[in-house]
Write a protein that binds this DNA or RNA. Sequence first.
DNA 1: GCGACGGTTCGGCTCGTACCGAACGATTGT
DNA 2: ACAATCGTTCGGTACGAGCCGAACCGTCGC
Lengths: 231, 231
Amino acid sequence: MTSPSDLAALAALLADETRAAICLALLDGRAWTAGELAAYAGVAPSTATGHLHRLVDGGLLVQRRQGRHRYVQLADPSVAQLLEDLSARIEPRPAPPRGLRAATASAALRRGRTCYDHLAGRLGVAVTDAMTERGLLDQSAGFALTPAGSAWLADVLGWDPAQPRPSRRPLVRGCLDWTERRQHLGGLAGAKLCETFLGNGWVVRIGSGRAVRLTTSGRVMLRDQLAISLD
Amino acid sequence: MTSPSDLAALAALLADETRAAICLALLDGRAWTAGELAAYAGVAPSTATGHLHRLVDGGLLVQRRQGRHRYVQLADPSVAQLLEDLSARIEPRPAPPRGLRAATASAALRRGRTCYDHLAGRLGVAVTDAMTERGLLDQSAGFALTPAGSAWLADVLGWDPAQPRPSRRPLVRGCLDWTERRQHLGGLAGAKLCETFLGNGWVVRIGSGRAVRLTTSGRVMLRDQLAISLD
DNA sequence: GCGACGGTTCGGCTCGTACCGAACGATTGT
DNA sequence: ACAATCGTTCGGTACGAGCCGAACCGTCGC
């Protein structure tokens, strides 16, 4: 039997508005830095540090230290599920997907979609994996572009990641996908990649949602450049 | 999008040890009185009143006033589900039921089982409904035995509910069953009924768990006395 | 090496809230 | 009508927890 104090301790982790904001932000699957979360939640960095400690100790978050940065992420998909269950109780869902049309849309989303401004779904994961295998991306300690990867991006995208950037946004960043349970490429490079894929007609949006479909020319490009063959 | 303050407010309801104890107690599906919950949680009645107000306002609990009593219950099965999801994160489940043996046991539990000391499952609900239909039980305002119901119990059980009782336990009490989503008969009368069913061999326990099986003599008795026919 | 930057620790302030006891309704049964 | 019981309201206390600023530590880039 679960003890009341254990349940209360778990609930207390989410019972603070700042911690709730942090968890909801992390629900996008990305790994955020402590400073980003502090700014997002509108509290001082020192305050955020304390909250992150509690959330990590409580098992809701995991952290990864990388240089002077501390990246933080939801611990596992079940945490995301829990947060979504709680959210559902606040605002009931429109309706569970029913019927052939909805099932088709759902399958399309699993195949490929955009996550904010970069590629996700099986397509996003496949591209990320292929880049890693071909030495373009280093996933051993977080995400980092190799020199070959920078060159490849410059070649494919006509955009050189080594150029000085106006934005403070990280060049590459891991983004966890809850349906695939795999990391895919986010960050500035991920956004540029997605932009190019759409701009060159390698993928097209299905309707007005986030789902995307790989085109024939896109399939050719992936096969030639990254030796990827998707259904 | 869910706002952080809404999520925090919901979590805060469970973030107090006393409120958590109350919710876990109510997870048995029964309707408890405010005083019982106060004693169970080990706080003063005035303190419990405040907590119950918060839980009802927050939508986790519903209340029903009956005389000078205030009965309180989980608002709906989804609340029970949420509590169980949270508990599961504290102590991971042994394993989901797999295999024929487990599926059979699961089905047996759905058919008939004991809930603490009274009958639940489809059997418990069927008995309760039959008693209501035959004017033995009044469910219009909570649960109450009709005079005819008292006589029937005295006849069937050889136990007169009208006799002065040593126990302070309520004579009858509604008990919500999450799998059936229906109320069944709890309280002292429910316990006596269950005791008689077991003592007369109308139902027998399956193995050492809570599942029970209706015997042939039990089937006859239900048909004759309450016009119930179960598979 | 030295500054810049991200993150952490510590001290101190403030506010929320859980708690109880006592007094006060409301209901039931004698 | 009266007493007993269940529940509620109110006032007052105390403890916990969130917040910030300042000082400090480790990493990165020049």
